[in-house]
Design a protein around this nucleic acid. Structure first.
Lengths: 192, 192
DNA sequence: TAAAATTGATTGAACGTTCATTCACTAGCT
DNA sequence: AGCTAGTGAATGAACGTTCAATCAATTTTA
């Protein structure tokens, strides 16, 4: 591996974890550097500013999510099977990397997230668009725009994961029912 | 009205708007005070710290949402009718007060939001619980725990509103389809 | 009733701290 | 020796918070 990428990745991972615990402004650049094992100044050989670091971190995470989910997708299966697999992969990814989920949520609801940023080339959004488009084309999904379908699905994944994160304790009682959530979402979006 | 509540409310409204635009840490206490027409020090006669102000603001907003939605609910209608009305009221509320939605999202995904806070008495959560419980009791909804049903519904409302907020421009094309979202959610949660 | 005294909310300059960013310097490699 | 990458102390701006001083309103006193 190129050492440059290695150190950048180290900084990303360190920032992710700190931001999850303390938020954007609770994590000083100096702390990110320390946890990554470098000096404060070094951060500025990789990024021009803290803000730029956070913007790049956003792209880094989005790309990771895309890679994870898209490589596990198997377009030869029926769309219904693909949907349940997609749900599973996305949910497990977020649950296994809580910092991903936490960072992404903080980011999208922060002033970092501008309409311009959302409209700049967005591989993850594009992939999602294609995915749901195929479902419609195959007649498996209601004939709606992929964006609308994505709203339904991603929204439910996010709030499920958030629920599991904040109510770890209470989960015992309802754990059995959780598997029904993707089923409900499916029943909502499938061609009736 | 007691002048004390008036000034507190002024501070709340000023903080809400500033936090929407600049985030928690982009809004200095001094700025909140200025916009509310008081001096910086005055904030500290109403709150012990900035953090405490933000925590109280969270409760203030949650209570407003509860009041708005619960007073408009009419338990004499069929549950299906109540559901669509609920959806409509919550969506319109968030769309008409973007600062509510933005603040709540920032708050819940920030480190301010602890599991303890979520588990402390939460009138909004309690009301939601009862609402969906009734749907199940009437046989209108799948026999699932109210929490799970709330996940589905609230998650979709939030991501719909977020979508509308960030893609105001693109909305023309899909506007007609937006009304189908509550229908999809309903089809997912109703007793099949 | 009018002046004086008291009260407590409000002010905003000042304080101490934190933090992002810079830069003179060093270490390590070719 | 020259070059690049890395260091971490120094800088200065911004912020949360404090507090002595002010002011308006109310109560007491004569």
């Amino acid at each position: 591996m190129e050492p440059i990428q290695d150190k950048k990745t180290l900084l990303f991972e360190s920032a992710l974890e700190l931001i999850r615990e303390h938020g954007f402004h609770g994590t000083p650049v100096s702390r990110v550097a320390r946890e990554a094992g470098v000096a404060a100044g070094t951060v500025y050989t990789y990024f021009n500013s803290k803000d730029e670091m956070i913007l790049e971190l956003y792209k880094y995470v989005k790309l990771k999510v895309l890679t994870e989910v898209s490589t596990k997708d198997n377009p030869e299966l029926s769309f219904q099977q693909r949907f349940f697999a997609f749900w599973d992969h996305l949910t497990s990814l977020y649950l296994s990397k809580p910092a991903f989920q936490s960072f992404m949520e903080q980011f999208v609801s922060s002033p970092y997230n501008t309409p311009e940023l959302q409209q700049s080339t967005d591989l993850w959004g594009a992939w999602l668009g294609k995915f749901f488009e195929q479902g419609v084309a195959e007649g498996a999904l209601r004939p709606l725009s992929p964006q609308i379908l994505a709203i339904m699905v991603i929204g439910s994944v996010i709030s499920l994961v958030r629920y599991l994160t904040y109510f770890k304790s209470k989960t015992q009682s309802v754990k059995g029912e959780l598997t029904q959530i993707p089923q409900m979402v499916w029943d909502g979006i499938k061609n009736q």
